[in-house]
Amino acid sequence: MFGHAPEIPVFPGAMTAPLRLAPLAPMGVALTLVARRLIARHPGLIARLGEHGDKRFAIDPTDLPLTLLMHPHPTHTRITLYRRPPEADARIAGPLAGLLGLVHGAYDGDALFFSRDLVIEGDTSAALALRNAIDDAELDLGAEIAALAGPFGAVLAPLIAAMQRVSGVALTRVEGGMA
């Protein structure tokens, strides 16, 4: 997983086909809400971006028929979805499972980059700053989404854990922590 290319699960085309027809605008609004909540809870994310805090990042899961354009901001982060990679300062592309694994501390960014599972284009400094900021934030997207689901979170959390076990995709933070 660290010195060599990991086996990263790839979403089968049949599973992602419905996304080709899905309305992008409401999905973008939902992702924007999740991102704003994450940044409010992890202000260090923006601080660590430093001079790159106003850059536009294209996050491109190569096994999905869409790309996220993220424009970070302390309070008004915006995520917009596109069918094709849009203009951006930096583009970070790779299988969704690889991108989620980076967020959740399952994979090492350098290892994925040098094995060419991850592609970085454009502003290398900005991409590096984002990668390091996310690594430091110790995010747990599964827990955040379960928390957003309110009373349904109690049902959602074990469902996410089960999906993680079956798919091998890191949908939650992989490590615990000492006080």
């Binding site: 501390g105 350098d110 690594d135």
Partner: peptide, 11 residues
């Protein structure tokens, strides 16, 4: 020092 927390933990 440029590597991820995942790498640091494992090594």
């Amino acid at each position: 020092r440029q590597r991820s927390r995942a790498y640091v933990r494992e090594v």
